[in-house]
Amino acid sequence: MTATSSTGERRPAVAGGAPARARRPRQNFETWSWFFMRVSGLVLVFLALVHFALTHIINDVVETDAAFVAERWDNPLWRLFDWSLLALALLHGLNGVRWSIDDYVRSPAWRAGVKAVVYTGSGILFAYGTFTIVTFA
């Protein structure tokens, strides 16, 4: 690795002229989780607003029953829409909870325990939601 100064000189990056060490890409799990939060947050704004408009404004909530859901889910694209909302909302929320657990649960044993409960609960919710969306008839 070399750096170029404003005067155009190139110089070795490591003190003493030692060979620059091989660089690996710097991104790690935390980098990608940060990126996921930003992208999923943006997508969720769109998904949640459409969901809200459809189920609370265009249709009256009191008239929302199994028949309404069945009619909507006749179209597989709506199933995909609802599954995306489920998956992104759960993962986005889960990642946020993971960050908060890392911040505020300081005992390693407690942290592992709390994370195990949260991950298991989220996994069950995700599996149950996916099962419902896929098999609803």
């Binding site: 750096a3 100064s5 404003s6 110089r11 490591v14 710097r26 790690n28 980098t31 960050w99 890392d102």
Partner: peptide
């Protein structure tokens, strides 16, 4: 632009206790 220690600094900041908090 004069500094060449960015890689080491970013390694510290990319840890769990770094900027991602």
């Amino acid at each position: 632009s004069r500094d060449e220690g960015g890689a080491d600094r970013l390694d510290v900041l990319n840890e769990r206790s770094g900027v991602w908090r």
